[in-house]
Write a protein that binds this DNA or RNA. Structure first.
Lengths: 256, 256
DNA sequence: CGCCGTTTTGATAGTTATCAAATATGGTGG
DNA sequence: CCACCATATTTGATAACTATCAAAACGGCG
């Protein structure tokens, strides 16, 4: 696993109030307002971020132990492998998400977290060690939301059709990115997943994923191209996917 | 939600070393040995257990806030509902499992935990408040295993066929029950799920679940009857389901 | 320009869902 | 002990959805 240091400041996000360098702070302050005096010291972790190329294994069987980290930029996938080669992406890890610390043998041999794109990752020790009540509360809410994403994933795979799954996932991705200010405008985001990777999230074959995405395009619900996805008709997508929660969008989103 | 007090001692389990009244202690000590002097005071929580009839909603939209509790006996289901009535059971809650505390509005409106059988539930405050390092460690491992069950559930639904899902779930259920000594002998356990409920776990229709179970019986891999399931050919089931982990059976199971 | 990974297409098989009804099963009251 | 009810399991026929296989178009890049 190769990693190179990277020079601090990564993404001076547009004109939103306190533009932290750490996406995780943008995410947490979106959940619970956090004092600047508390947040700024934590934000300095950004200066110690490292860069990893795409396809890097971030944690897995024979990886060294890792402290807790957070994603500055890039997407990763938490995968489970079946012994015949089938792969299921259990959850996607986006900017602002926390990669838990791993002990060397804590990780089942069939579980890996791999970088889907080039990534920049910062240590999360200062954040997780904070005893500030707002931070603690925000972390608790964040954990609850992450659990919610997982429950949603179970429900998607267990009870929804291909088009429902796809619509719902795209909405979730948009909303999760919006929480850290990593969208492009009110309805578009950088979507680095290949259809094959998308299939491993959705529990479908590549071919079927392709046809499903085409259907969504044909019905003018989304637009795709140049590595971007545009949510054209959010209402229709939300209806198709029976999309509401994602951990509590309505309740938790003070920005916008 | 009706609840009645119940007189202490619930299940003097067979002849295993420290036969705690709280299944959660049996589970935790199976993960990390815990001193009796530490465990016994916690075990007293068993005397404050309450009984709930089947179908009780244990937590959900308009339920009162609840402190953390653990299951003494009975099975519950954590469900997600789609607005058209489809239901997915995200995870099953078995004896020894912990029901997290809930704040009144912390629970999404489409999420409920409901008793599948009559249940006996004890408060978990003393357990969760413990600062004993062994207990803390055991709770951490337990949390990791529960996460593992959830990842397994995602993988089952996303990438496995009906027969694979069914085989894997039955093995998981056996192993989880074995951890708290709630099995009947080396290969049998009380299996209170109707095929309809089972379907909502497996993401299948009732009819298809029925045919799948029949196939497992026909091939002499399991036996069922009188609310029991018997794992007849564990090796074959494990092979079909690509079953290994479940959070680390091999690593964590000192009893037997 | 040509290579390689990704997306797209077509034809077909396989798995799972749907619908409707028959057959157990377990518990209850007479 | 038996008839009867409600619930659960089972069966059959058919439709719908998703997978599979193979190959053709794209698209970016050295």
């Amino acid at each position: 696993m190769r990693a190179t240091r990277v020079m601090a400041s990564v993404s001076p996000i547009s004109g939103r109030a306190p533009a932290f360098d750490l996406p995780v702070l943008r995410r947490l302050t979106a959940l619970v307002p956090i004092d600047l005096t508390v947040a700024m010291p934590i934000d300095r972790a950004a200066t110690q971020s490292k860069r990893y190329p795409a396809r890097t294994t971030l944690s897995g069987e024979r990886q060294p132990a890792q402290p807790a980290r957070t994603i500055m930029s890039g997407w990763a996938a938490h995968c489970r492998l079946l012994s015949d080669g089938r792969r299921q992406i259990v959850r996607l890890l986006l900017p602002g998400d926390i990669l838990p610390a791993t002990a060397p043998d804590n990780v089942p041999s069939d579980e890996t977290v791999m970088a889907l794109t080039e990534m920049v990752i910062a240590p999360a020790a200062a954040l997780l060690a904070s005893v500030d009540p707002q931070v603690v509360r925000a972390l608790r809410i964040d954990a609850a939301m992450q659990r919610g994403y997982l429950y949603t994933q179970v429900t998607r795979l267990g009870r929804q059709s291909a088009i429902e799954r796809t619509a719902g996932l795209l909405l979730e991705l948009y909303d999760r990115l919006a929480l850290v200010g990593a969208t492009e405008g009110p309805d578009r985001f950088v979507m680095p997943l290949t259809q094959e990777t998308l299939s491993d999230v959705l529990g479908l074959t590549t071919v079927h994923t392709n046809r499903t995405v085409q259907q969504l395009r044909r019905e003018r619900l989304i637009e795709t191209g140049r590595g971007r996805t545009r949510i054209v008709d959010r209402a229709a997508l939300a209806q198709i996917a029976d999309y509401r929660r994602t951990g509590g969008r309505e309740a938790y989103r003070p920005m916008l």
